[in-house]
Structures are given as structure tokens and as C-alpha cells.
Design a binder for these strands. Sequence first.
DNA 1: ACCCAGGCATTGG
DNA 2: CCAATGCATGGG
Length: 305
Amino acid sequence: MDRIARTITPVAPFDFELTAGYLTYFQGRYATDSLVDGVYRRLLDMDGQLVLASVSSVGSLEAPELIVELQGEGLTPAVAEVATNKVAWLLGSEQKLEPFYVLAQSDPAMAAITQRFHGLHMPHTDSVFEALVLAILGQQIATNVARIIRTLLIETYGPRRTIDGEIYYAFPRPETLAALRVEDLRGMKLSQRKAEYVHGIAYTALDDPEFIEGLHSLEDEAVVRKITSLRGVGNWTAQWLLIRALGRPDALPLGDLALRRVVSRLYFQDEPQNDAQVEEFCRRWSPYRTYATTYMFTAMRTGMA
DNA sequence: ACCCAGGCATTGG
DNA sequence: CCAATGCATGGG
């Protein structure tokens, strides 16, 4: 087992615990990710080579610095370089939040939220495929149910590695999910329809990887047009893809019940708002609607809204 | 026993 | 083009 250490210098302000904890808020784990005793861990699947990244903070909010310890068989400096870049991406460390914070000052509620969660960056998924499958799994079910299903899928079909007596999982590969029968996915507590969606997306990702992973080079609108042609992917899923997989700052997941609720709670005295009203209202945060959405969800999750 | 929860595709008007 | 409906699971 080879080990290499690297550092990452995120764009300030960067709150490591808040950002790494965004995914792992439930018992410090999210199937593929963990945050225990200030160390964020994730098993990276790099062209079939499994590398465990262990990340800890040695800096501060305004002068952030992260230590990334990598371990795996045949770990070379070149591989470590790619792995470090992946970790930087996973933690959204390049995001510049200041312009959004300035915009948030024009609104007392958002100003309070951004102050409370100062330095929270938006975590990203490793691949577009991962974000797509996770979004399908999360459609129209309670987050708790979604978590159970997600964990089951990852721990059943994800590549794994035992290190120091602990099992780590990477997200299942397209070829693995594409090779399954729909009944196998139904065994993962997916509905017939979702099992078909996931299978179809895995098949597409395997058959035409560029269709999925090539979305990085397209404009937001083109991404939405292209990805919603897949069965199981509507606007809500496309917007989450822009946020979670592509790191776009101005996405807005209209149709999201939680978004409607949190906007109505924070700005309309709990008076229910429909999608058109939410869209109209959220214009004030463009071109940073991704950040506004994520911060509102975080506020809601922690009982602040 | 019900009802609902961070949607989508299909169908019927 | 828009509204209604089935889908599956687990928690309240």
C-alpha cells in the first residue's frame, strides 16, 4: 500500500466541517462519504484504481488549507495529482462565495443565513452519472427513505475496499448497473419505473459516456435540453444535476416541494407558493440561485427555517 | 389504518 | 396545451 500526502488551498472563506458535513450530516456518513473526528474520507474510483482520500483541515475559515492523505496500491505521483484535484472538486473548494454574500446583504433573511453558514461551499459529485442516479433515487420520496435505498444500492453494487479494518465504498459503476436486470434493481427497493430509469441511464452512460460526462462543456440551457431527453429526467433532476454534478452557480430546482416550503416560510409568512411564484421571487438571487437554494435548504435542515 | 414525502411519464380532456 | 393519475417505500 502506497501513501502520498498533498495539500489543497480552497478559496476563502471555506468552512471545512460545514462543507464536508453537508453530505454526511446524518450520523457522519453518506454511504460513500464519512466525516469522523474532523477527517473526511472518500474512496475514489479512478479508472478502476481505488484510492482512499482522508482529508483534514489545518487552516482557518479565512486562510483555509487542507491536507489530503492518499492511499492505494500502486499509487504514483501522477495518480495522486488527479486524486487531489478530485477531492478539491468534491468539496467545491474553488467556489467564490463573496459575490453571493454581497447580494445576500440586500435581504435580511438571506443575510442572516449566509452569516450563520459563512464558508459553506457546495459539495459536488464525482461523476455526472452518480448525480443522475442519486437524483432519480431521491425523486418524490422522503429523504430518509431515499437514504436507505441509496445506501443499499451503494453497499450492494459499489466497488469496495477494506482499509485498517474499515470498509469503504465508491459509487457503483455504469457497467455494473447496466449489467443488472431490472428485477435486481427492484430488489434495491426501487419502484418498477425507477428501476427502469436507472437501468436505462446506466446503459446510456456505458454505451455513450460522452453523452453524460460531456455535459461539462455545455451551457446550462443546453444541458437541460439534452439530459431531459433521457427517460426519468425532468427539469427538477436536470437542475439538481447542474448543482451537484456540474457546479453551476445559477440553477433553480423548480418543482421541489421543500424549495416551495422554505421560500413560503422565510418570505411569505408560510403562505403557500407555487412554482411560478417561487421562480419570480428567486430572480433576486440570480446569478447565484444555486447558492441561495443550498443555503436555504441548509437553514431548513438545521431548524433555522 | 391512513397519508405524505426534495417527480416523472402517461393519459384523457 | 394543461390537469389528473399511478408508482413504491418507510415514517408519522
